[in-house]
Amino acid sequence: MIAVDPRSQGESGKTTYGHLPESRARDYKQLVDRLGLEQPVLIGWSMGCGELLSYVEQFGEDGVGGLVLVDGLIPAQSPAIVSVLEGWATLLQQDRRKEADIFVRSMYKTPKPEEYLQRVIRATMEVPTDTAVTLIHNMDAVSDFTKAFARIHRPMLYVYEPALQPSADYMKAKLGDKVRLVRFDGEGHALFVDDPIKFNRVVYEFVESLPK
């Protein structure tokens, strides 16, 4: 397994440009090509879901074994969601540390050690505030995945918490039997942390079922 720190996040370089979903998708494609990966299964969480759909829109899926989308807003645009995200972007610029603390704690439904939470908060704070606001804006701005859906022919897995049932319904309506839906009841946005055993089993079974 290869874990990727996207541009301006984690230990990757912090840049002042290239934070559009299509730009970050090109970063992933460059990594796949540079490492010579053959039919990799790409897994995206949260805003990474839209970035992987942009990957397929730009490059197709001939070189991809499958896609796993984890708890992403697809699409992000609805009046209620836009209002929440716009308000959050403003709050981030007013008190980044406070909002990072609130957001990280909200990602989990099961208790986590305080040391662990503080480590995640510190990692979140590594992303420059202006970049964080830009990423939220760019994620929210994408509302049309028609071109990406048209290029999807291989199976896709979408795992999600109950709050994202509208996204699951939307994807099912657009992709039909091409997408497999697995709902995690009782888990939060970081559902792979809340229930790692179930998450790993679901992903493993999906990967094993892919056409060889």
Rank of each mutant, 00 (worst) to 15 (best):
L42G: 04
F59H: 09
L85I: 15
Q30V: 08
G65N: 08
G66P: 10
L85N: 10
G63H: 14
E22P: 05
K14V: 13
G13M: 04
S106F: 07
L73I: 05
S23E: 13
Y108K: 04
L35V: 08
L31N: 03
E86T: 11
R26P: 00
E11H: 09
Q58K: 10
T16G: 11
T110C: 06
S12P: 03
G72R: 01
F103N: 08
R105N: 11
I102C: 10
S78A: 12
C49R: 03
E11Y: 10
R34Q: 14
R34G: 12
R24G: 03
L35G: 09
Q58P: 05
K109F: 06
K98R: 15
F103C: 07
M47L: 10
R24V: 15
G63R: 15
F103D: 03
S46Y: 02
G18Y: 03
S12K: 01
P75F: 00
G36V: 07
Q93A: 14
E57V: 06
V32D: 04
M107F: 09
L53K: 00
Q94H: 12
L52I: 09
V82T: 13
V84C: 06
A89C: 15
K29C: 05
L91N: 06
D101F: 06
D62R: 15
A100H: 08
D101P: 08
P21W: 01
E22L: 07
Q39G: 11
L69N: 07
A89R: 15
Q77E: 11
Y55L: 13
S23K: 11
I102E: 14
R97T: 15
P75Q: 00
E11V: 01
L20F: 07
T90L: 14
L52W: 06
V68A: 02
H19K: 06
L37S: 12
L67K: 00
L53Y: 06
A100E: 10
R24S: 08
G50P: 09
D71G: 09
G50A: 11
L67G: 01
A80R: 14
A76F: 05
T90H: 13
R34F: 13
P111K: 00
L20M: 11
I43W: 01
G48N: 05
Q39P: 08
P40F: 00
T90Q: 14
Q93Y: 11
E51H: 07
V70G: 01
I102S: 10
K29T: 03
C49T: 13
F103M: 11
D95M: 08
L85R: 14
D101S: 14
A76H: 03
D101I: 05
D33W: 07
A80F: 12
W88G: 02
D62W: 08
P21D: 02
L69M: 13
G65P: 11
T110R: 13
C49N: 05
S12Y: 01
E22T: 05
V41F: 09
L85P: 02
Q30T: 12
S12C: 04
